[in-house]
Amino acid sequence: MKLNFKKSGQGDVLIILHGLFGSADNWFSIARELEKHFTLYLVDQRNHGDSPHSDEWNYELMANDIKELMDNEGISKAHLMGHSMGGKTVMKFATLFPEMIDQLIVADIAPRYYPVHHGRILEGLNAIPLDTIQSRKEADDVLAAFIKIPGIRQFLLKSLGRDDAGKFIWKINLSVITEQIEIVGEAITSDKPIEIRTLFMGGANSDYILDSDKEEIATLFPNSSIIFIKDAGHWLHAEQPKAVIETVMAFLG
């Protein structure tokens, strides 16, 4: 699948992948600094942003989408960074195409299985009547009955777009995500360790990377380290962008 992406900057290639319900736009504030040092590719994964929708959706396919992008762009090797679902995509890519990765950054996710925990979000998104709402405010009012935190609603509603006729549409493939949400939590495994130099970058206030994950991370990625960003939760790049930029720059050198 040919993915939508935004390219900027110059230098070594750094490909960045967003998480579930997100898009390349989530990384714009980070990109303004990183593009001074790298050729950045901010990518919309399949079923997200402006990339195509498909009924087929799993980490092997998403990893192969990235390989297709790299092949089409003439990129033989790159740094890869992914957040949450994007972190699992880049880990899967590392199990399939390790020779195409220079260094790897995984943001606030571990390789283990995660149980489904997005039910309330999906209820809220599916409750928004796209055929009848006239404004984003109306969509937000519906979503507020399911999600109390305004910042989370604002993030989710970034995926609300309009078609050529001006009708509201979801840029995410909401029906497929709803039906196949279990795939997001699937574990990333490998028959052999991945020797790529890897940074796991967690939010200190997040529960996505736990002490109990450290052994599994070290086994699968023996050349890895773990750093926690102070005063950051799961969306660490939005909550502490300066610290994330400094950490990425220090790791990639």
Rank of each mutant, 00 (worst) to 15 (best):
4 N>M: 14
116 V>F: 05
147 I>C: 10
19 G>P: 01
10 Q>S: 15
67 K>G: 06
30 I>R: 06
212 S>R: 05
235 W>H: 04
68 E>K: 02
27 W>C: 13
238 A>N: 06
23 S>E: 15
172 I>A: 14
152 I>C: 01
112 R>Q: 15
165 A>W: 03
171 K>M: 10
18 H>V: 15
73 E>Q: 07
66 I>E: 10
24 A>F: 12
95 T>K: 13
143 L>A: 05
176 V>W: 07
148 K>M: 08
31 A>K: 00
157 L>T: 14
181 I>P: 09
12 D>Y: 00
40 L>T: 09
18 H>Q: 12
217 I>V: 03
77 K>M: 11
190 S>Y: 00
110 A>T: 00
194 I>R: 00
170 W>S: 11
16 I>Y: 05
215 E>S: 08
38 F>L: 03
14 L>F: 09
92 K>G: 12
151 G>M: 14
23 S>Q: 10
252 L>P: 06
54 S>D: 10
148 K>H: 08
245 I>M: 02
225 S>F: 01
246 E>I: 01
23 S>L: 10
226 I>H: 04
49 G>A: 01
244 V>W: 08
60 E>G: 11
174 L>H: 09
156 L>W: 08
212 S>H: 07
69 L>T: 09
248 V>D: 11
244 V>N: 07
165 A>Q: 03
242 K>I: 13
38 F>T: 00
249 M>P: 08
92 K>H: 14
210 L>A: 11
22 G>S: 12
229 I>F: 02
